[in-house]
Simulated assay, not measured.
Amino acid sequence: MSFLDHLEELRWHLVRSVAVIFIFSIAAFIGVDFIFDTVIFGPAKVDFWTFRKLCELADLINSSALCIDELDFKIQSRKMTGQFTMHITSSFVIGIIVAFPYAFWEFWRFISPGLYFNERRASRGAVFSVSFLFLTGILFGYYIMSPLSVNFLAGYQVSEIVANEFDITSYVSTISTLVLGSGLLFQLPVVVYFLSKIGLVTPTLMKAYRKHAIVVILVLGAMLTPPDPLSQVLIAFPLFGLYEFSIIISRRVIKKKEKKELLEQQQSK
Rank of each mutant, 00 (worst) to 15 (best):
M1I: 13
S2G: 15
F3D: 03
F3I: 06
D5T: 15
E8F: 14
E8R: 13
E8Y: 14
L10R: 11
L10H: 08
H13V: 06
L14E: 03
I21E: 05
I21V: 13
F22E: 08
S25A: 14
A27E: 00
F29K: 03
F29V: 05
V32M: 08
V32L: 05
D33H: 09
I35S: 12
F36T: 04
F36I: 02
F36G: 04
T38A: 13
K45Y: 10
D47R: 06
F48M: 08
T50M: 11
R52C: 11
E56C: 08
A58F: 15
S63V: 15
S63I: 15
S64K: 14
D69Y: 07
E70F: 11
L71E: 07
F73E: 12
F73H: 12
F73L: 12
G82D: 11
T85I: 10
T85M: 09
M86Q: 08
H87C: 05
I88S: 00
T89F: 08
F92Q: 00
V93L: 07
V93R: 04
I94S: 00
I94M: 04
I94P: 00
G95L: 00
V98L: 08
V98T: 07
V98A: 05
A99I: 03
A99R: 05
A99L: 01
A103H: 00
F104V: 08
W105T: 03
E106D: 06
W108K: 10
F110Q: 10
I111R: 02
S112H: 07
Y116K: 12
E119S: 00
R121S: 08
A122S: 10
A122G: 10
S123E: 08
R124K: 13
G125V: 05
F128T: 15
S129D: 10
V130H: 12
S131V: 09
L133H: 13
F134I: 14
L135I: 15
L135W: 13
G137H: 07
I138T: 12
Y142C: 09
Y142Q: 10
Y142E: 11
Y142F: 14
M145S: 12
P147D: 13
P147A: 12
S149D: 11
L153H: 11
G155H: 08
Y156H: 12
S159G: 05
I161P: 04
V162Q: 13
F166A: 07
Y171F: 11
S176F: 01
S176I: 03
T177I: 04
L180S: 05
S182I: 01
G183D: 02
L184K: 06
L184Q: 00
L188H: 05
L188K: 00
P189G: 13
L200K: 10
P203K: 06
M206F: 06
K207L: 07
A208F: 04
R210K: 10
R210C: 02
H212V: 12
I214S: 09
V219H: 02
A222M: 10
M223G: 03
D228I: 07
Q232C: 06
L234T: 01
F237Q: 05
P238V: 01
L239Q: 03
L242A: 07
I247G: 02
I247E: 00
I248E: 07
R251N: 09
R252K: 13
I254S: 06
K255P: 05
K256Q: 13
K257T: 15
K259M: 09
K259N: 09
K259P: 00
K259F: 02
K260Q: 14
Q267A: 14
S268P: 01
K269S: 14
